[in-house]
Each structure stands twice: as C-alpha cells, then as structure tokens.
Design a protein around this nucleic acid. Structure first.
Length: 423
RNA sequence: GUGGCCGUAGCUCAGGUGGUUAGAGCGCCAGGUUGUGGCCCUGGAGGUCGGGGGUUCGAGUCCCCUCGGUCACCCCA
C-alpha cells in the first residue's frame, strides 16, 4: 500500500515526461498562433461552482466529484472539468470588462473524477482546453473547432473524425425534448431501465444509449437540428459554412449530446476509433447561459477539453510520438580519487556553457564508467587522471565513432561547444 | 456502482492432477591482465509468489474475502 499509487493515477517517468513536454510545447505554439492566452486556475474550487454549472443531474456531479471539507468547514471540490473555473475567473477578475471576446487556454492543472479506470480514463487526468467568452459569432465556433484540428495536424495526424451537432437553446430545446418524449413514450416498454430513467430526467441522453434494443428506436427519433429556432438554425448553418471555409471535415451526428447541462447550440467531438469505448479525444460545445448562471451579464461562450492521456495514446498508436533525445552530451570519467575536484570543476564549467555534462559518483572502475556513459547515453567522454592533470591535456573520446584524441584541459569546454554546435 | 479476464524477481513470463532450498530471458551490479564502452563469457544481488483468512501433515498451486490491474457498462477527456 505504501508503495502503491492511488487507483486511476499515473506516474509519468522521465522518458515519458519528455514526450509530454514536447507535445505541450506544440500546444502552446498553436495557442499563441491562434491568439489564446494561458490561464491557470486552482486545482480546487468551491463545490457549488460545479454543482451549479455542470448540472445536478449529471453523473459528474452526482457521483464522480472529489469533494471534501477543508479545515475551515467549507466544502471544496477537486476540479472535475475546466470550463466552470475559467468562467468563474473571467467574472472574478473582471475580464468581461476588457475587449471581447476573451480567448483563453489551460494546460497544466489536472482534472479529477472518481470513476472506475479503463482505457483512456483515469481518476486524475490532464486536459488541454480552450475557451472563448464574449462572442456569439459562429466564426468563433469554427475557429475553436479548428484549433485542435490544427494541433493534430502539427502532430502529424490528419485523419481524426469530427462529430458535430446543435442541441438548441432554452427557446427551442423544450420543443425538441417534447418531441423526443412523444416519440419514445409509446415504446417505453421496449427500452432499457436506464433509458426509462433518462426519459424522465434528460431525454437527450436516450439518443446515445448503446443498448441494442434501444438503438432501434432512436433511428426514427426526431433530430435536434430539425427543431432549432431561427437563431440557432442560422448559427448552425453559419458554423457549417465557416468550417467548410476553413477546410475542416466533419459529420453531423444527430445523436451527439454532451455530458454537461450547460451546453447550448454547438456541441462537437474529435474522436479516434482505436481508443476503445472512450473514443473522444476532444469534446466541447457552446455554453451561452453559463456566465449568467454565475451571476454575470448574459455572455456567450464556447470551449473544449482535450484529453492529454488520450492524445498521447493516439500518438503512440499511430507511431507519431515526438522523438525526444534524452541523455547528456559529455561524461567525465575519472581514474583515481585525487582528480575528482578537477572533474567536478570541469563538469561545472561545461554546464555553465550550456553543455549537458555528468560525472561518476559511484567510485567505479574506468571500464564501468565507460559502460555507464555508453548507456546514459553520452556522446563524448573525457578521461581525467593524474597523468592528464600533470601534462595538462586529456583524452576526448567520441563514443559514436570511437575516435579519441588529446585536448588541452583549458580548451575542453570550447572544443566540446564547437563539436556540439556541429551536430 | 455493476460485470468479464488477470495479479510469480525492475520488465516479459515458466512453474501437469497441491510435496524437498520458486526458475528462465532481459535489465541491474561486478569480474574476464596494467587506465577505455557497445559483442561475448563468468559470477552476484534481487521475490512478503498482490494482501488476509481457510482446507491440508504440507499451497505459488484448492476455497472465501479483500486490494490492485485490465476491458466493458454508466458517463466522460
């Protein structure tokens, strides 16, 4: 137990962390090019924030939140999603008073959901997300959807699918929900127990039931896009036109509904079939009522979350993991303890010059040190012994070519800097 | 929260019908002449057989519980 990490969590070891960093750098580059600024919000928030925004009836709020009392008796919750905290910060910090729209992204803070782990699902996971607040322009929707597409393109992936739907707004959704109920009411006896519950609580959910018996009945079910009000229909049409303008390929998926109650109009997913049951790499949508729900002026918004673990999985599956070099450039091997001070100073000087360098700390034989340097892997080895100190020069060995020559001690740093620049 | 499969060294795995000191490969450490890696050879370290209980003269092997991994459902990144 002492040496076991909590269920659904992961250790990211150096080799893998390097790949994360490489992907994160590409993400930051895309965000910069799209004009999104980074925002970092707390790992935990007041519990009410998530209860109010995600919706009391959602699974996330009902059974998946890491909620606890702090020592002051307040109920706080480890963030299960990224949108609500960003909207909270937008209001709390007066970003609504500046130029609109405000374009933000987040990357570092993990998310927490108490669920049974499975492929691509963890209790602590990481999301890259972006949000745009303050514009209802469907071109914003198109830009936001094209952002992860551009990211994937830069990562060397062109062919992930995009599912798109519009689930309407408070004006038109009630009519659609009524139509759904009308459609399913006569068939209730045929449906699974879950769907009978959904019928009461949230009929939209009945659409993505995977139960074979229920699937039959949703074929003929009414589609939300056929019940949109004028504003929503125009918005959806505008979005589709802009997506085509930007060359984003997508399919309209009438059964696509998302898990948070705050979504309005646009919902979308970027998916990768080989991921298994959780095939959504990225999911998001518009939330035009959320800011008002938190006490702000009516302000439209849209955003997405992209699962980092899932993205890394896709990259690995496609053989597109970024190549990262690990290891030092120079290893200083020592023959005898009396040269250790000089070795330490040499390593210090190399590091100061920006040349990754290391030295033996195990008191090992020269042979072992060479072997160690080889595995590290180091490109060059400098061999220091009392002879070398006496004559003022030392062998510099290229482990790749096995070439070795003597270099004056006071020229080593410069020599290695030049070799490195040449690589 | 529900269900299927799984749980032996750091890693990948062997260990018929329960029976002496639990094995292999890889990895790790060391040695193979005097100060030189990658190949090869030799040796060494390393295992509460996930944990607990039970059956038995005796369990890694059988039974129960539990924890964990994995996949699926619910839902989601």
């Amino acid at each position: 137990m002492l040496t076991r990490r909590p269920r659904g969590t992961n250790d990211i070891l150096p080799d893998e962390a390097a790949r994360w960093q490489a992907v994160e750098e590409i993400i930051r580059g895309v965000c910069r090019d799209f004009g999104y600024g980074e925002i970092r919000t707390p790992v935990f928030e007041h519990t009410e924030l998530f209860q109010r925004t995600a919706g009391e009836s959602t699974d996330v709020v009902r059974k998946e939140m890491y909620t606890f009392q702090d020592r002051g008796g307040r109920s706080v919750t480890l963030r299960p999603e990224g949108t609500a905290p960003v909207v909270r910060a937008y209001l709390e910090n007066g970003l609504h008073a500046g130029p609109q729209p405000v374009k933000l992204y987040y990357l570092t803070t993990p998310m927490f959901r108490y669920e049974r782990p499975q492929a691509g699902r963890y209790r602590q996971h990481h999301q890259f997300g972006a949000e745009v607040l303050g514009s209802l322009d469907p071109a914003v929707d198109a830009e936001l959807i094209s952002l992860p597409i551009e990211l994937l393109r830069r990562l060397g992936i062109e062919d992930l699918g995009v599912r798109l739907n519009s689930i309407g707004c408070p004006n038109c959704r009630p009519g659609y929900v009524a139509a759904l109920r009308e459609h399913f009411r006569p068939r209730l006896d045929d449906l699974c127990a879950d769907c009978r519950t959904r019928f009461e609580l949230n009929p939209l959910r009945m659409l993505d039931c995977k139960n074979e018996g229920c699937r039959r009945h949703k074929e003929a079910a009414p589609r939300s896009v056929d019940y949109l009000c004028g504003e929503c229909a125009d918005h959806f049409q505008g979005l589709r036109t802009y997506l085509e303008t930007l060359g984003v390929r997508y399919t309209v998926e009438p059964t696509l509904v998302r898990g948070f109650d705050y979504y309005t109009k646009t919902v979308f997913e970027v998916f990768y079939t080989d991921l298994g049951a959780q095939d959504a790499v990225c999911g998001g949508g518009r939330y035009d009522g959320l800011v008002e729900e938190l006490g702000g002026k009516p302000t439209p918004g849209i955003g997405f979350g992209l699962g980092m673990e899932r993205l890394l999985y896709v990259l690995a599956d496609l053989g597109r993991l970024p190549q990262v070099e690990r290891g030092i450039t120079v290893f200083v091997a020592t023959a005898g303890d009396d040269v250790k001070p000089e070795a330490l100073r040499l390593v210090r000087d190399l590091r100061r010059a920006g040349i990754p360098a290391d030295v033996d700390y195990g008191g090992r034989s020269l042979k072992s040190q060479l072997k160690f340097a080889d595995r590290y892997p180091a490109r060059y080895v400098v061999i220091l012994g009392s002879d070398e100190l006496a004559r003022g020069s030392a062998p510099l060995r290229d482990l790749r070519t096995a070439e070795q020559r003597d270099v004056p001690l006071d020229r080593l740093v410069q020599e290695l800097a030049e070799l490195r620049a040449r690589d």
